[in-house]
């Protein structure tokens, strides 16, 4: 069965049946127009129409802080690798965030492989959720070509009023369908409704910035010495919100810490950011990117140029989180527009 149908009335059964067996996380409201992925027991708290959550679902694949190994100093160099992971279903992931997870998969599969990430990833079932309309004015998913589903999920839900059309993409997705027994067969009329919605969606989602997708890489290539970075230098306060909320940022810092007995200890990693003052500091106190503008430029280049050379893929997903959360109103779409104007 490639496509299935779930009546809206049965969504609660689907979620609560899954939640009896394993952890289920889904977008819930945090008030003030903000959302986050949280554990749910049924569908009552789930918000289907939401702007991107404060943190992307990245936090389940690469937790903010995670133990990598535990050691015991009283036995010489005795240490043991640790992977903290748990089986779970991640429900309600927008196409931008699916793209973010795909980026992380690529980065962490590179040699040396990141086993903590890869082991954890295999425990997570992903259920995507289509955006039929824009979430808000910050999104640039159309520019990044992430507004339509493009893989990276086990099941994919499209809300069509009284029912969801569900694309079954993997064996694991099929198992979720079999296990919960709340799905029906989708017939031709349902598929026509889906096609109609997608056609309408093509009219709604337009390239948000006046530049072709393929032209982004050359634009950044010739903007190395742009004045736009000086402008960002004046504005950025280096709060690092942009990178901490980014679905494709994966930098981390590793620390060893002893327990109070000063014998046992653990090595853990924690999200780090190229925007932080100390990130590019080396011994002697020198910093490779002392100016905030240089750090901002680095962030943009890690999304639009370097990953193109390395993975032939943009690492910006168009989710708009960096612009939404910026304390200094630095807006990704405006930055690209300024670069275009300057080079015109």
């Amino acid at each position: 069965m490639q496509y299935a149908l779930l009546k809206k009335d049965h969504l609660n059964d689907f979620i609560s049946k899954l939640a009896q067996e394993q952890k289920v996380v889904a977008p819930v409201s945090r008030g003030f127009g903000q959302f986050s992925f949280e554990e749910v027991a049924d569908a009552s708290r789930i918000i289907l129409k939401h702007i991107p959550t404060i943190l992307p679902p990245k936090k389940y694949f690469m937790p903010q802080e995670e133990t990598l190994l535990e050691y015991n100093l009283s036995e010489g160099q005795s240490m043991e690798a640790v992977v903290e992971c748990q089986k779970m279903v991640l429900f309600g992931v927008h196409t931008c965030d699916l793209a973010g997870i795909q980026c992380l998969n690529i980065a962490f599969s590179e040699r040396p492989k990141d086993f903590n990430y890869l082991i954890r990833k295999n425990k997570i079932a992903i259920v995507g959720l289509e955006c039929n309309d824009y979430c808000d004015e910050y999104a640039s998913c159309s520019l990044m070509d992430n507004h339509f589903p493009n893989g990276g999920y086990d099941l994919f839900f499209t809300d069509l009023g009284d029912f969801f059309i569900v694309h079954v993409n993997t064996q694991l997705g099929d198992e979720l369908i079999e296990k919960t027994k709340v799905f029906e067969r989708a017939d031709k009329s349902h598929m026509d409704t889906l096609a109609k919605m997608r056609e309408k969606k093509r009219g709604i989602f337009k390239n948000e910035v006046d530049i072709d997708h393929q032209e982004l890489e050359p634009l950044f290539k010739k903007s190395q010495n742009s004045k736009v970075w000086d402008e960002l230098n004046k504005r950025c306060v280096a709060c690092a919100n942009c990178t901490n909320v980014c679905p494709s940022c994966y930098c981390f810092d590793v620390t060893d810490e002893l327990q109070l007995d000063l014998k046992h200890g653990k090595r853990y990693r924690r999200w780090d950011s190229c925007q932080n003052e100390g990130f590019a500091k080396v011994s002697g106190g020198e910093s490779f990117r002392e100016k905030r503008g240089e750090r901002q430029k680095h962030r943009y280049y890690r999304k639009f140029l370097y990953p193109m050379a390395k993975f032939a893929r943009f690492f910006c997903t168009g989710c708009g989180r960096c612009s939404r959360t910026c304390m200094a109103k630095i807006n990704l779409k405006e930055t690209i527009r300024s670069l275009i104007t300057e080079k015109a």
Partner: peptide, 20 residues
């Protein structure tokens, strides 16, 4: 740490005080 409280606050996924 020589970075802002925002860093730890974002990792804790709080709703930003300025949004409130």
């Amino acid at each position: 740490p020589d970075y802002s409280v925002c860093v730890e606050c974002k990792l804790a996924e709080n709703v930003c005080m300025y949004e409130k």
